[in-house]
């Protein structure tokens, strides 16, 4: 399961726990379920949890930018949590921090309720 989704109605936050390698091959399988959920629930916040991602190339940057744009178009925002050092390096190189916050250790509960 490359992507687990949780929605917290109270904070209108959608949490997507990504896992595995993010490359061109896997990106589509991550993009589709996340976008479907965004279009159904119209969250104010999308949280992409990268803690389970061990590898990412520029396809992951495309994935982040695409979700950023979608959230922006829907009037919401994006937060990225817990990339490992190797993945964080790619994000820094790409300037992902200019689009959204990238934080370590999001304080989220298991049920997916997110405290920002």
């Amino acid at each position: 399961m490359p992507c687990k989704l949780f929605y917290d109605a109270e904070s209108r936050s959608l949490l997507a726990e990504l896992s595995g390698d993010i490359d061109h091959c896997s990106a589509k399988g991550l993009r589709e379920p996340v976008d479907k959920e965004i279009m159904t629930r119209l969250p104010l916040h999308l949280i992409l949890d990268f803690s389970g991602v061990g590898f990412m190339d520029s396809s992951g940057i495309g994935l982040i930018i695409g979700r950023y744009k979608l959230m922006n178009d829907m009037g919401g925002d994006l937060l990225i949590t817990d990339p490992c050092p190797e993945v964080r390096k790619i994000m820094e190189l790409a300037g992902v921090g200019r689009l959204c916050r990238v934080i370590q250790s999001g304080h989220r509960s298991f049920s997916g309720g997110v405290k920002l």
Binding site: A27, R31, D57, S58, S59, I61, G62, L63, I65, G66, I90, L93, A94
Partner: peptide, 14 residues
């Protein structure tokens, strides 16, 4: 349109 960032060569380079 395929969500390519145009960063492949920049990443290879660095």
């Amino acid at each position: 349109e395929e969500e390519r960032a145009g960063l492949g060569f920049a990443i290879m380079e660095s």
